[in-house]
Amino acid sequence: MKGWWWKLLSVVLLLYVVIVGLGTPLGPALVHASIDRIAPGPISLEATGYNTHFAANTPEVWLENDGQRVCATDVKVLSDVQFSADFNVPEGFRTNLTSLWAWDAADGQVVLREAFFTQGLGTGIAQDDCVVSDAARTSFAFPNRSILNETIRNLFFHVPMWFTMMVLMTIAFWQSLLVLRSGDLVADGKALSAVDVSLLFAALGLITGSIWARATWGGWWTSDPKLNGAAVTVLIYAAYLILRGSVPDPHKRARLAAIYNIFAYVLMMVFIMVLPRLTDSLHPGSGGNPAFNQYDLDSTLRAVFYPAVMGWILLGIWAYTLHQRTARLRSIYDEANDR
């Protein structure tokens, strides 16, 4: 059978997304230090890493404040993810926030930014000869960002859900235009199927987004232009289904539903595209918040994200064609059996 290759492609892509997207480890990072303030004089601290390999490669450890470094006088490795370090903190750091850095051959540089509140400020320390390595890590891993942590993988599921929903709604919009042009009931059935499936993807987008919001922002739902846009979209298409339900005559129903769909789709698109750019938002990609692709979406994420978008969209279209074919067969069956 010709023309089914894209269904196979979507399955292959999504298998790749699930395996690589969930299987790839997160990059190493420092996540915790045993103290949170430092003062001039000798100090000792323990630091905790995540996905680091300290045991096999004793790390170089240093403090950095406004570009000035102080290396550890002694480093003891406790485990793969833990080391203790001693410093002789000099007087005279310029800013009151100091970062903790470490480097080892397997992990490259890892940092706990603004880890310590710093006392004994001055006009800068006398720079000692603290030379550090900066060879990057070579392993394939996703970026490890504070707050996001492991949830960064949700990028491959949450974002493509909305893309797929948009594609399906555009299909519904197009079929509605055809309905108005020709009064074709088959096109009306296609529009309905596209809306049904797009609502499924909207629900999945809401669920994945809600879980993500809980993990990163601390709440299941926040009042936010992007989230309002999503809610409005779902309400509009729910209203579309109710409008269909309240008109018994199929031709009239097709026309009224098409008119509402076109009206709602255009206004919704304008709303979703414009409004988040007008107001502040926690959500990436709006209100001055960068979207992932500006600096977060590095090449390792891209290698999974683009196939994920492609795979989910193809799967959505596949679901739409199946839904529409079963609906058509059912109506033919009902007619034949005179129901």
């Binding site: 309002n228 729910a238 209203a239 008109v247």
Partner: peptide, 22 residues
């Protein structure tokens, strides 16, 4: 649209709210 669907003010609220919300 609501008048055409023959379902008066109730349907108008359902159809209108999401569109007017933005």
């Amino acid at each position: 649209l609501a008048a055409r669907a023959g379902n008066g003010v109730g349907l108008m609220a359902i159809l209108g709210f999401p569109i007017v919300l933005p």
